[in-house]
Design a protein around this nucleic acid. Structure first.
Length: 1034
RNA sequence: GGGCCUAUAGCUCAGCCUGGUUAGAGCGCUUCCCUGAUAAGGAAGAGGUCGAUGGUUCAAGUCCAUCUAGGCCCA
């Protein structure tokens, strides 16, 4: 027999905590893996969260999706290895520690000691990982945290080293220059994150400069022609090597005053303003390529330069559409200049001052050089215009020094050399949603630039390259290799700074002493290496890696397109010539109730642990999975989550509690499914199997929203139709009903287990564990029996429910409550004639009408027939004649038309050579008079409103039953308690109703005795006080 | 500036791929009904120029183009 269960779960969180403890005690997660040890694998990779702070609600989102699909696949018979991982390195961790220590820069860290600082970073990571672990367990995310990979583990670092050596050996890892914001005072580059904190409004000079054209066709045609170039950083003009033009834009040669200028057509009016000007010629931007010009300064020597190049990124929204290129001081500039083999000219030193030997500006701080340079341009007649320009410019957030975009040596992975391979790998990857593949992500790949790998920082995987004074480079792939190279045992070395920095090796090329280069690597490389590094491959874990590569499924939020989705694919392609994953689910972000991004700054952050404490993890999970589209940004709020419990999970539980209540009352024992011909049983089982099949299919396609819709709809059907309609059978302990609901709940519980693992576990324990696996999460996905499916019956039941709704509408309009029995209802609806007697009886009972008949059979003249064209079927056949055919149908006598369509021919020929069948029209039949009628979509229900005294007395009896039931409930009686019943009524008709139907009333309310006359106390009365009743336990 | 996503009821979201003539659900509001499991359920009402404009089509919330606004990512 079932265990007793409470009618309601008042504290979902407490229930879940018990389940968590139970899982832990029984080691259920590990066993769910163990029992699939030899099963085919469905590999999942956990993208490691950066443990630099407390987990937020967005972490739950991704982790719910990372959990539900592996659970589903596990039930389906796969082994789904799930190893947790923690991203330990990187600037975010360093910044968090710097903040804790009150540091303001690299100098502070160096003074503190790199070893000590890195130790603090390690501690910080450990601290935050604990919080993630707590969240993970609480939300029911099953992932193996005991064997979690940590990117700071020596074994992991060694594996990363090995892969970097592979890339180095392929010639794809090299040092080059990278333009990045740099603080000349602090002597360090700044990350994007830091720049964002330091924008300040400043006034810079905005100068328009003439670059005289130095040759070519245009120079011949327009002597004295000059390019007009706009810049807000005059100091970079010293390093000019080219001018970029937008190839797709149109440029004009314009005469103004006594000079001739070239600039973008769209800019002419803005730039020349009120001055008189005349367009002499138009030139497509693309034709300007290689047009030579005279450099604005000749202070440093630049060879093979100074011509116009194509610049796709050049805009004509401001400036002149001609952009001066100084590769040392702009990322776009550097990229564009590289394409033309142009040199990089950098006369500015690391301290931000011009080299001493540069004429005019030598020794000046870069910003201070603007003034003398502008004066010099003016003197030489090259300055066209000079005005102040106020704009936001990045400053160092620590010392407020203006940053300089500055080319610094940096290590790159030549991903551009493998771009075609990356695109090919992307071609073979399944993206959800599919648009990401060639949209956001594909676009990023097509515009791929080399991966700037190195960081001038402390807490990261050290770049394993040793360099000797002769610049010979040696890549090291493991501590063992390093030991061999160094000639001493370093197997126990912590492969972090500063310890690796102290290891020197003799250069294999020249024997001189090689020291490690100072950089650490981008922590995104660490996480991209997780498919092999989590096993320490190839130094250890060969078998695990081979079995688990590549992943079948990964899942993160959309911001990872340029993050983990990319690095995982890139590292896989670079090292193993294939991407590391096959299917990728890309989630939208979680927003607050106002649609804003959650941030500490706005104070709109929802603490995930608190959210689960309040609503339960199941409700939060359901919300994340099923409320809105996974790949769309969604708003999360308390109300929406509370609704999940109320509408879905509480209803599910309540159905379970109902089953338990009556099964226990009937001493019913679960066993084999009791075969039943009852139409409700057949329908419920069909719906259950339908739901299992649909949820299965939807989860296969990562459509958790669709799966939630199916589950919620079945829960509603079960609770508000099957149970409601079948109550009497449960009171009677009907084994077929109990067995059917048992089976429906079993199928539902299994299908819902991946989504809401807690409540389904609870239900499993209470109802099913005795006859099956100990845990629902050790159970197999249910097999769908085609024999149980009956789509025709499901359709017929849908019609029944539609007719019942129509009947209610009709009653509502006639203001006659459902409790009042009526003599007759007439129905007209497509499909009505196919309904069996049991389903018709169902309609009669729901409508509380003694008879339900077909409207068509009620005799001629009673019924009004109207016909509407069915455009969907007509349109298919008649195309542009459809409106005309619709008009012809409208002009046809509807009664005649319907008669013809219902004749044996089932077809009607209309004027204009129109031939229509029964599907081409929607027929609505309504009785003419004396009926309450409701119609919709060709279905009509008409209720006979004529109330006889007999019917009225029966209505009174129904009212009496209702009042007694209420009385029982408010007196706190148990549903099976027998009672004695007393009643009194002044109205003789009411009294007659009581006497006439006393037996019925007594049977319905479990009264052993019914007598007229007052009982003890005030008793209970109906709404209109037509009678009074007294109840007492028998 | 570029790319992508989104825009449907007061709010949260379906519907759009595959076009069909009173556009759906839930929450909230009003009225009523039903209730031996239910924090439930049902009916009706109020509440929609389906972001705008143009196009394709016999027919557009649905397909196409442009625009606007918001979001995300990147400059």
């Amino acid at each position: 027999m079932y265990r007793e269960v409470p009618p309601r779960i008042d504290d979902a969180a407490a229930m879940e905590e018990q389940i968590i403890a139970w899982w832990r005690d029984r080691d259920v997660f590990r066993r769910s893996l163990a029992q699939r040890a030899d099963a085919p694998r469905w590999v999942f990779y956990e993208g490691p969260p950066t443990a630099n702070g407390s987990p937020g609600t967005h972490h739950i989102e991704a982790r719910v999706f990372k959990d539900v699909f592996p659970r589903h696949r596990t039930m389906k018979g796969h082994l789904v290895p799930r190893q947790a991982g923690w991203d330990c390195h990187g600037l975010p961790v360093e910044l968090a520690v710097e903040k804790e220590l009150g540091f303001t820069g690299k100098q502070d860290i160096e003074a503190f000691g790199v070893a000590e600082f890195n130790e603090k970073c390690r501690e910080s990571v450990l601290r935050h990982v604990d919080q993630f672990a707590a969240l993970t367990e609480r939300m029911g995310y099953w992932v193996d945290m005991d064997s979690a990979y940590w990117t700071m583990d020596p074994r992991y670092v060694e594996s990363v080293w090995w892969s970097l050596k592979q890339i180095f050996d392929k010639g794809l890892l090299a040092q080059d220059h990278r333009v990045s914001p740099y603080c000349p005072r602090c002597g360090t580059g700044l990350s994007d994150h830091e720049i964002a904190q330091g924008y300040e409004d400043v006034v810079d000079p905005s100068v328009y400069v003439r670059f005289p054209v130095a040759g070519g066709d245009l120079a011949d045609r327009f002597p004295g022609l000059a390019l007009l170039v706009w810049t807000t950083t005059p100091w970079t003009l010293v390093s000019n090597v080219a001018v970029a033009a937008q190839p797709a834009a149109t440029y004009q040669v314009v005469r103004t005053g006594d000079e001739t200028l070239l600039l973008a057509a769209e800019r002419v009016a803005d730039v020349l303003g009120d001055a008189d000007w005349e367009v002499l010629a138009e030139v497509p931007g693309a034709e300007l390529e290689y047009l030579p010009y005279q450099a604005p300064f000749d202070l440093v020597s630049v060879a093979d330069a100074h011509f116009v190049i194509d610049g796709d990124y050049v805009t004509t929204d401001d400036g002149t559409g001609l952009v001066h290129i100084a590769p040392a001081f702009g990322a776009d500039d550097l990229a564009a200049a590289r394409g033309y083999g142009l040199p990089m000219v950098n006369p500015v030193g690391a301290d931000g001052t011009f080299a001493a030997d540069v004429p005019l500006v030598g020794g000046l701080f870069f910003k201070k050089a603007d003034e003398p340079l502008i004066a010099d341009l003016d003197l030489r007649g090259l300055l066209f215009r000079h005005e102040p320009y106020e704009h936001a410019y990045p400053h160092c957030w620590r010392c407020h020094t203006p940053l300089i975009y500055y080319a610094q040596p940096s290590w790159f992975i030549r991903t551009t050399a493998r771009k075609d391979d990356l695109l090919a790998q992307n071609e073979d990857t399944h993206w959800f949603p599919p648009t990401t593949q060639w949209g956001r992500y594909g676009d990023w790949l097509r515009n791929n630039i080399d991966w700037a790998l190195s960081r001038d920082r402390f807490w990261g995987t050290p770049l394993p390259i040793w360099r000797c004074p002769a610049d010979h480079l040696t890549a090291v792939g493991s501590l063992a290799e390093l030991s061999r190279a160094a000639g001493r045992d370093l197997s126990g070395l912590d492969p972090h700074r500063p310890f690796v920095d102290d290891v020197t090796i003799p250069c294999p090329d020249c024997g001189d002493t090689a020291t490690r280069v100072p950089e650490v690597i981008d922590c995104w490389y660490d996480s991209g290496a997780m498919p092999f590094a989590q096993y320490g491959y190839p130094h250890t874990g060969e078998a695990e890696f081979t079995e688990n590569y590549p992943a079948d499924f990964i899942c993160e939020a959309i911001d990872q397109t340029r993050g983990w989705f990319y690095t995982l694919m890139a590292v896989g392609t670079l090292v193993f010539d294939r991407s590391s994953y096959r299917n990728v689910l890309c989630l939208g972000h979680i927003l607050d109730e106002e649609g804003r991004k959650m941030s500490k700054h706005l104070g709109n952050v929802l603490d995930p642990m608190q959210l689960m404490a309040e609503h339960g993890a199941d409700s939060v999970r359901w919300f994340m999975l099923a409320s809105g589209s996974p790949w769309q940004a969604r708003r999360v709020g308390h109300q929406a989550i509370a609704e999940v419990w109320r509408k879905v999970l509480a209803t599910y539980w309540s159905t379970v509690a109902f089953q338990v209540l009556y099964a226990r009352a009937a001493q019913w024992e679960a066993g084999e499914l009791t075969a039943s011909d009852h139409v409700m049983d057949r329908w419920a089982l069909s719906r259950a199997h339908h739901t299992v099949a649909a949820v299965d299919d939807l989860l296969e396609r990562f459509d958790s929203q669709g799966a939630g819709r199916e589950l919620a709809s079945f829960i509603d059907d079960l609770s508000n139709w099957y149970v409601r309609r079948s109550r009497r059978r449960f009171w009677d302990g009907d084994p077929a009903a109990l067995s059917t609901l048992h089976e429906c709940l079993r199928l539902l519980t299994l299908a819902m287990a991946p989504v809401t693992p807690f409540i389904t576990e609870r239900v499993w324990q209470d109802l099913f564990a005795a006859d099956g696996p100990e845990s629902v999460h050790l159970a197999d996905w249910p097999t769908v029996a085609d024999s149980a499916r009956d789509p025709g019956l499901e359709e017929q039941m849908a019609l029944v429910r539609r007719l019942v709704d129509l009947g209610r509408t009709a009653r509502g309009e006639a203001a006659i409550g459902t409790r009042q029995p009526l003599a007759e209802a007439l129905v007209a609806a497509p499909g009505w004639s196919d309904l069996g007697p049991d389903l018709r009886a169902l309609v009669a009972e729901e409508l509380n009408c003694h008879r339900v008949e077909s409207l068509a059979g009620s005799g001629d003249g009673l019924v009004e027939v109207s016909v509407k064209p069915n455009f969907r079927s007509l349109g298919r056949r008649y195309g542009n004649r459809t409106p005309e055919v619709a008009r012809i149908i409208a002009e046809t006598d509807p009664e005649d038309l319907v008669a013809r369509l219902r004749s044996a021919a089932a077809e009607a020929e209309l004027p204009g050579d129109v031939r229509i069948g029964p599907d081409d029209v929607i027929v609505t039949e309504t009785p003419r008079e004396g009926w309450a009628v409701a119609s919709q979509d060709g279905a009509t229900v008409a209720l006979d409103l004529h109330l006889t005294p007999e019917l009225l007395r029966l209505g009174t009896a129904r009212q009496a039953i209702r009042v007694v039931q209420d009385a029982r409930k408010s007196s706190g009686f148990d549903v099976s308690d027998r009672i004695t019943l007393r009643w009194d009524a002044a109205d003789p008709e009411v009294a007659r109703a009581w006497e006439e139907h006393g037996g019925l009333i007594a049977a319905e309310v479990l009264a052993t005795a019914v007598a007229r006359g007052p009982g003890a106390g005030p008793g209970f009365t109906d709404k209109d006080d037509t009678f009074r009743v007294w109840v007492a336990r028998a």
